Amino acid sequence: MIRFIATFAFVGYLKPAPGTWGSLAALPTGLGLMLLAGPWGLVLGTLTIFALGLWATTRMIAGSANHDPSEIVVDEVAGQWIALWPLAFGAANAGAAYTALWPGWVAAFMLFRLFDITKWGPVGWADRRGDPLGVMLDDVIAGVFAAVGVVILAGLFHAVLM
């Protein structure tokens, strides 16, 4: 069960770039949460996957010199779901289908991967913690940055192009 959670149903074993595969797997599962329970379902799912991910990561890396093995991708799922929050609430507030905001989905994915890979500012600080909380927290922060980027891009799109 620990590996199943930490690797997000073994997606973390896909090569190359398991983190990207984890982020990609987060998109349809995030959509599923939105369709089943709306935007607040996605928020609750994010909090749940964070807690489960922290628990599983703590156990999976116990006694290991590698504090962030590439196959652990539950952190990417939590961060990617955070990046989707503006889309979930925006679509719900507008009465639109979640998939109608597809450019925002692309932006959320690309921005999250950008912040997760480059580890700018607080993302890098969290990553350098070298503990299970740091493993999870760097992607949460990257997800928050990506969510802010999605909001900014949506605002620019609607202000300039609409």
Rank of each mutant, 00 (worst) to 15 (best):
residue 82 I to L: 04
residue 148 V to W: 03
residue 57 T to I: 11
residue 96 A to Q: 03
residue 150 V to C: 08
residue 6 A to E: 06
residue 6 A to G: 14
residue 13 Y to C: 02
residue 84 L to N: 04
residue 52 L to G: 13
residue 92 A to I: 06
residue 149 G to M: 06
residue 74 V to N: 01
residue 36 L to M: 15
residue 65 A to T: 11
residue 97 A to F: 11
residue 17 A to S: 11
residue 15 K to L: 15
residue 131 D to N: 15
residue 140 V to W: 09
residue 111 L to M: 04
residue 85 W to M: 14
residue 103 P to G: 00
residue 141 I to G: 13
residue 112 F to G: 05
residue 77 V to R: 00
residue 27 L to A: 04
residue 81 W to G: 04
residue 123 V to I: 11
residue 39 P to C: 05
residue 81 W to Y: 05
residue 94 A to K: 03
residue 150 V to M: 07
residue 141 I to R: 12
residue 141 I to F: 13
residue 19 G to H: 09
residue 40 W to M: 07
residue 50 F to T: 11
residue 152 I to R: 08
residue 110 M to H: 07
residue 15 K to R: 15
residue 90 G to F: 10
residue 115 F to A: 03
residue 78 A to P: 11
residue 151 V to G: 07
residue 70 S to A: 15
residue 112 F to N: 03
residue 60 M to K: 10
residue 97 A to W: 09
residue 148 V to T: 08
residue 43 V to M: 11
residue 101 L to P: 10
residue 91 A to D: 00
residue 92 A to Y: 05
residue 82 I to S: 01
residue 122 P to G: 06
residue 26 A to P: 13
residue 99 T to G: 03
residue 48 T to M: 14
residue 136 M to K: 13
residue 88 A to T: 01
residue 31 L to I: 07
residue 88 A to W: 00
residue 137 L to G: 04
residue 149 G to Y: 05
residue 95 G to K: 00
residue 12 G to W: 04
residue 32 G to W: 00
residue 102 W to F: 04
residue 79 G to F: 10
residue 76 E to I: 12
residue 17 A to F: 13
residue 37 A to G: 12
residue 24 L to P: 15
residue 34 M to F: 15
residue 137 L to Y: 04
residue 51 A to P: 10
residue 22 G to A: 03
residue 98 Y to D: 00
residue 87 L to G: 06
residue 106 V to S: 02
residue 37 A to M: 13
residue 108 A to D: 02
residue 17 A to L: 12
residue 54 L to I: 08
residue 126 A to K: 07
residue 36 L to T: 14
residue 153 L to A: 12
residue 121 G to P: 14
residue 10 F to A: 01
residue 154 A to W: 15
residue 96 A to M: 03
residue 122 P to Q: 04
residue 128 R to E: 07
residue 131 D to P: 15
residue 69 P to M: 10
residue 94 A to N: 00
